[in-house]
Design a protein around this nucleic acid. Sequence first.
DNA 1: CTGTTAGCGCCTTCAC
DNA 2: GTGAAGGCGCTAACAG
Lengths: 372, 372
Amino acid sequence: MTAIDCKTNVPITLDGAEALAGVQRGGDFVKKDSSRSSRPNMKELAEALNLDRSTVSRALSEDKSHLVGLETRLRVREAAMKLGYRTDLTAAALRKGRTDTVGIIVSDLENEIFITVLRQIMAELHGTGLPNITPLIGETRDDLSATRDLLHRFLSRRVDAIISLAASDDQADILRSAAEQVPIVLAIRSIRGIDLPSALCDDQAGGAMVAAHFAARGHKYVCQVQGPVAAATFRNRALGFSHVCKQSGLVEVPSSLIVRNATTQEGRDSFASILNASPRPTAIFAHNDSIAIGLVEDLRSGGFRCPEDFAIVGFNNTQISRVLAIPLSTVDYPTVEVGRHAARLVSNLIENRDYAWKTSVFSPSLLVRASS
Amino acid sequence: MTAIDCKTNVPITLDGAEALAGVQRGGDFVKKDSSRSSRPNMKELAEALNLDRSTVSRALSEDKSHLVGLETRLRVREAAMKLGYRTDLTAAALRKGRTDTVGIIVSDLENEIFITVLRQIMAELHGTGLPNITPLIGETRDDLSATRDLLHRFLSRRVDAIISLAASDDQADILRSAAEQVPIVLAIRSIRGIDLPSALCDDQAGGAMVAAHFAARGHKYVCQVQGPVAAATFRNRALGFSHVCKQSGLVEVPSSLIVRNATTQEGRDSFASILNASPRPTAIFAHNDSIAIGLVEDLRSGGFRCPEDFAIVGFNNTQISRVLAIPLSTVDYPTVEVGRHAARLVSNLIENRDYAWKTSVFSPSLLVRASS
DNA sequence: CTGTTAGCGCCTTCAC
DNA sequence: GTGAAGGCGCTAACAG
């Protein structure tokens, strides 16, 4: 560890007059004379133009520049450009009571679905609605206290809204209290015990599609490798799948197989239990593609064939699922719709806190490829 | 577009005295009486305690609370807790000339290496150095104008520093000018034409290791599937590899094979060219794991064996490389070191702009697994 | 140890 | 169409 204490290390000596004239910034005295080399603030820009700050402010603003004479407006904008003026958004935020930021909470930055939806949200925010909003992104890894910290930070930074792609049941309390202070929108995951505007996928329908597909293919014994139940996502996939199994006379063996993390590694590890089941299932529904890939890899290593010995279907339609030697059957997640809806909800809620928000649930669709 | 103008829509009528007492917020007049239900600001907290705002500020601060009597300090903190006081960091930032934010520029949020380094940076910032810094994350997808916009946004938000994991040669100008206003640190990718403190991997050494490995295994004809050359990363891997090939008498065929994007799909697509080469190479160095996986998948589909027909080595040691049916040989990227160094650089530069920054280059290491 | 005072840079009412 | 003035919430000199 290099111990560095530079607070007292800056050997700048100023005599009285200069010290007073200096502008304090970040704890150091920075001489800021009128022949400044650094960029001007609005006041300085106004002085350079012999105009009032308010006129400059209006001229530069997006929605109020019409209040300024055309000539003045152009003169201001040109000077701003030339002198390298750059709005201080922290100051603007303080004054406006609006930061033009939204906090986005993600549970896992390595998960392609979250990233895809995240991108969609950002694109949509830029396009429709708010033009130059900055997202503050935080990752929780499904840790409650990390979530609490993140919410606190976002709230302290006065974000205009929060989107959580990482909700889970244990967060109901903290989300509820946060929602009293700022609009909160849920995406991908909904939770029990709190009703917030949400953008969701119909996971139950997704699970049901897979079961129906297995039934149509003539499978009799099937199983599902379920993700953690804290998230509604996986609960619903399981529900939909099991429901149709019962309807169609499919038997689930083993009846319950839940991995702690929905990862490829755990997918691999879970294959042993399936092999040991009796009767042995011939079709496996993995709750996401990562798990599915783990299963495929492990059964390949064991000398089994896919789909002949085991049919496998994943969930999410990730990039890799398409390029595997045995392209993976999977459920396509409505990322575009979910992201777009989430973004629109926050746009509207920011513009109008009383916006009659509504939750939307979008349908996934089954993609049958080589693995089933 | 729903046009919403709530600025004039709130039919609250206040007589003179009350109007003055009212606090303006976001353009709306919000009656804020002393029996408030919303959270207090510092002034209100101070009034409730019969103290001055400055005393409250000190009592609540991390590094100046020792200036306040123990009893007062506790009283203040307790009251803050009870009344739900929450610092307004936008206001604090304006006053302090420091936002406690750093902008982080990433080219591709789906790339595991970037995410891993990003996490490391965040962890390190939280641990060492700055306690509660908020990262502003932006993705460029290697688009120059996206990068420009991002820099502009970060600068307007007055970030205390910027870390770019997405540098490329064409950004030299804009990075240089941005670096005059705020400390900038490069990670993963360095560029020509500008000298900034950086945290890098010795990609050249990585490429060299792979060539040496191929030579040791007795291969004669080899090839590399190179990533895009705009990033120094891939250029250096190619350089190191080719250099050792020449030294060791290995022949590269085809002599040059460059994909436009370093993705699994392009890896698959490139396998055809390798098959058609003559003499046909027996060992392939893929510039990252994504490409390598594409190659493996395609050769498997074609009935070839790995490593018997083709030895393959990737780069990055991604999660998936470990769990494939044929575990992938790969070069382990020093993500921890790179992330940590980048974080420390910015910490130091934020504390002291004149910090004698230095670039560090960390060594990768070859992991030989089943594919080579 | 605590209070007084003065802004940080911007936006917005109000007056002309 | 432009200027004058005040204040968003906080922190940091400077006194006492």
